[in-house]
Simulated assay, not measured.
Amino acid sequence: MTVGLFGGSFNPPHDGHRLVAETALRRLGLTRIWWIVTPGNPLKDHGALRPLDERIAMVRQMASPARSDVTAFEARYNVRYTADTLALVKLRRPDLKIVWVMGADSMATFHRWQEWRWIADNVPIAIVDRPHSTFPALASPFARRYAFARVAQEDARVLPYRQAPAWTFLFGPRNGTSSTGLREAVHVPS
């Protein structure tokens, strides 16, 4: 079974998130995608963070039930960092072929993540293009350091079976919706 792990605050989830998940499912030929709703991103302000249960419910409404699972196991296991999440999944489900899925906006700052090199060295990564993020992502420290491990998007279906480091950048339709923009729109005076 091939599973894409798509983590985030999803505060709130939006069509851009759905497009990333659906693109990864289709282009990588994944069996399932797990939406991992984090208790809180260590690199983001938690002041405007909606309650975890509320965000899980919103993701469940958005995610395609046919091939998606929505989980908050990071909260259950008191896991804070993606590297720890991936280590836990690999330990508990060694039978799975997993791929970390993220938008290009996250790739641009991936080098700031806790143990980002461990992640890249241990789990294949699929990056889905996002508006205004293509060039920052492809010029990022991650992209430069791991240029040798890039898999052409035409060969993306092999990514779940590749040994890390391995990554691909998937170009295609993009959706400009952002959680930050949605939160800011709520606070705009009329």
Rank of each mutant, 00 (worst) to 15 (best):
M1Y: 08
T2D: 12
G4V: 05
L5A: 04
G8E: 05
F10H: 03
G16C: 06
R18P: 00
E22H: 09
T23S: 14
L28N: 06
G29C: 03
L30D: 06
W35L: 05
W35D: 04
T38W: 01
P39S: 09
G40P: 04
N41K: 03
N41S: 10
P42R: 04
L43N: 13
H46K: 15
G47I: 08
L52N: 00
D53M: 03
E54H: 13
E54K: 13
R55H: 05
I56R: 09
A57F: 10
A57L: 15
M58I: 04
Q61C: 04
M62Y: 00
M62G: 03
S68P: 13
A72Q: 10
A75G: 01
A75Y: 09
D84S: 13
V89T: 07
R92I: 06
R92W: 11
D95T: 08
V101F: 00
A104N: 08
D105K: 09
S106R: 13
M107F: 12
M107Q: 11
R117Q: 14
I125M: 08
R130Q: 14
S133Q: 07
T134L: 14
S140Q: 12
S140W: 07
P141S: 05
R145P: 00
Y146K: 06
Y146S: 07
A147D: 07
F148G: 01
V151N: 11
D155M: 10
R157M: 12
R162V: 03
Q163V: 14
A164D: 02
A166L: 00
W167V: 02
L170Y: 10
F171A: 15
R174I: 15
G176I: 14
T177V: 14
S179I: 01
